[in-house]
Amino acid sequence: MANLLADPDSGLTPAQLAARHGLRVAGERPSIGRYSGQLWRYRHFISAYAHAKLTASFSNARLGQLWQVLTPLTNAAVYYLIFGLVLEQNRGMDNFIAYLTTGLFIFNFTQVSVQQGTQAISGNLGLIRALHFPRACLPLAITATQFQQLLGSIVVLLAIVVATGEPITLMWLMLVPAVLLQTVFNAGLTMVVARLGAKATDLKQVMPFVLRAWMYGSGVLYSVNLFAENLPGWATAVVQFNPMLVYIELARISLLENTHLLNDSLPLTWLIALGWAAVAGLGGYFYFWRGEQEYGRG
């Protein structure tokens, strides 16, 4: 069959004819360099899509964009009620409300990015099957949307921090690099779960449990010192490499006066934060690109 002539006049097989006119195999994956170039040309699409998603997510709610601020506030109130008032986790802590909300808002940024990331491909099949664009736009747009949400939360957070009696210091500026590193980390992680979620549709059901376990392991709701007090030494050593714990600790140490790091070394904490951002960012991008030609099929 393969040596059938494509064009009787030229006497070429289909493959030869295609090669002669520079035709490419349909759906071929571009090299990672070319892919990055394409992605750069699509930056306007990413920001427009992120913005569109943000507007669309509140389009059915009467209070609209106000939920961007109300959601984290309500969340913080509920956790304060349970962990602060009922379980009294605030014993021996100077400013539990600010401690809790910082942890919650920072963790929430990653949590929602990952949750939505599992749907980045499987929830946009219509768009993917209709139009051609580098698919990494979708998880990146999710990260961008959540980043915008985080900026709203941070305004609320700063208000809470000041209202609970923390001084405004130059240390606050450290929040900027900490959040940027976390954003890179999130982008990478979102791309990983996007590819996983494209194939394994059960991931959506499993993810809430994984994320909850992760939250308990990141010292969001109680003092991180509990890890050092209650866990055996090796486990504490492992926990201090937990990326979410590291990003939360960096945010806390920049905003709150009396906080201690789990490993007592600020440079080491920054190194871990940087390392995770690099590993997740580059690794996630590479992993997602490897699957580029599979998205939207099946």
Partner: peptide, 23 residues
Amino acid sequence: QGAVYTQGQPSLLGVNAALLNDL
């Protein structure tokens, strides 16, 4: 099995290709 070669990137336009319905 076999192969499909194309010039550039073909665009498929179908009736069931959905855009963002909330927008």
